[in-house]
Amino acid sequence: MNVKFIINPSSGKQIVQKSLDRIIGRLVLDKIIKEVDIYYTVNEEETFNELKNIPKGMFHLIVAVGGDGTVNQVINGMVKYNIDVPLAILPSGTVNDFANWYKISNDVESFIEMIKNMNTAKIDVGKVGEKYFLNVAAGGMFTDVGYKASSDFKTTFGKYAYYVEGVKEIPKNLFNSIEVEIEYEEKKEKKEIFMFIVSNTPMVGGFKKVAPMAKTDDGLLDVCIIEKCDIKDFVTLFLQVIAGEHINHPKIMYLQSNKIRIAPTSKDEEIILDLDGEKGEKLPATILTIPKAIEVVIP
């Protein structure tokens, strides 16, 4: 098996990357891997070019080493350029939502065993404009902390870097709502909201049950919208989100659909999407599912 490793050298827990020599060496010695090619990411454009220039049939597996943002870049390139081989993830980022949901470990022995077994699952991918996401598209309050926190800060403090960045945003965001128009399943509604999350897995931002009904192979995206509320309701709601008991809260709109359009009612309102922790498109946006678009190696 010929394998292409795509590695983010500045991603989260860099200690994982120090285990790569052991992982690759063991897989070569055990005759699981025949040839290896390693590429270190520079930016999204360069990663796309690297994937675009892979000759068809040259590799049998792509391994993304990094966090949710690195995986996002890799799946964008793979879907865009029709690279039809399985994707394995060695999580070394700040939060690793998708990998954590599937219990994909960065432990050396566990990762080697996973590659040896090569169990795979066909996974849905979300699409916004010309960009794709594996786990989440979100907008509004707190949804920009993923790309606002610096790489060094995330490397040092891990997922707590997001929480610190989120706390810093509370004073300016708590009472700032946005009015949006939501279209889905031939319905159209206007809502004044704090934030919206469109998810492919239940896990978002390290919280395990933000979208508790989500499945990665059902052809649907789970949409969780937090409507404007007072601080008392917000605190109660936040605690319910942590417990995964929020979807029946009166200030939550929860739905499943294969396509949703979200647009601000004011042209002066600028809302930027977060796609798997990366800065994405501006609203208005149509978010849809591409069923079983990518094959992922899972334990």
Rank of each mutant, 00 (worst) to 15 (best):
residue 128 V to C: 01
residue 129 G to M: 06
residue 130 E to K: 11
residue 131 K to S: 06
residue 132 Y to M: 02
residue 132 Y to T: 05
residue 133 F to Q: 02
residue 134 L to C: 11
residue 134 L to T: 09
residue 135 N to D: 10
residue 135 N to G: 01
residue 135 N to T: 01
residue 135 N to H: 13
residue 135 N to Q: 13
residue 139 G to V: 03
residue 139 G to L: 04
residue 139 G to R: 05
residue 140 G to D: 03
residue 140 G to K: 00
residue 141 M to F: 09
residue 143 T to I: 07
residue 143 T to Q: 06
residue 144 D to A: 12
residue 145 V to H: 02
residue 146 G to Y: 06
residue 147 Y to L: 13
residue 148 K to G: 03
residue 150 S to Y: 10
residue 151 S to W: 07
residue 152 D to V: 14
residue 153 F to S: 14
residue 153 F to W: 12
residue 153 F to A: 10
residue 153 F to H: 14
residue 154 K to V: 02
residue 154 K to S: 00
residue 156 T to N: 11
residue 156 T to K: 14
residue 157 F to I: 11
residue 158 G to F: 05
residue 158 G to Q: 10
residue 158 G to L: 01
residue 158 G to I: 05
residue 160 Y to G: 00
residue 160 Y to Q: 06
residue 162 Y to K: 00
residue 162 Y to Q: 02
residue 163 Y to W: 13
residue 164 V to Y: 13
residue 164 V to D: 12
residue 165 E to Q: 08
residue 165 E to L: 12
residue 166 G to W: 04
residue 166 G to H: 08
residue 167 V to R: 03
residue 167 V to W: 01
residue 168 K to F: 08
residue 169 E to G: 11
residue 169 E to Y: 05
residue 169 E to A: 09
residue 170 I to E: 03
residue 172 K to G: 09
residue 172 K to R: 14
residue 173 N to I: 09
residue 173 N to K: 14
residue 174 L to A: 08
residue 174 L to C: 00
residue 175 F to N: 07
residue 176 N to I: 12
residue 176 N to K: 15
residue 176 N to Y: 02
residue 178 I to C: 14
residue 178 I to N: 04
residue 178 I to R: 12
residue 179 E to D: 10
residue 179 E to K: 15
residue 180 V to W: 11
residue 181 E to H: 10
residue 181 E to M: 15
residue 181 E to L: 10
residue 182 I to P: 08
residue 183 E to A: 15
residue 184 Y to T: 11
residue 184 Y to Q: 08
residue 184 Y to W: 13
residue 185 E to C: 09
residue 185 E to W: 06
residue 185 E to Q: 08
residue 187 K to R: 15
residue 189 E to G: 02
residue 190 K to V: 09
residue 191 K to S: 14
residue 191 K to W: 05
residue 192 E to Y: 08
residue 192 E to W: 00
residue 192 E to S: 04
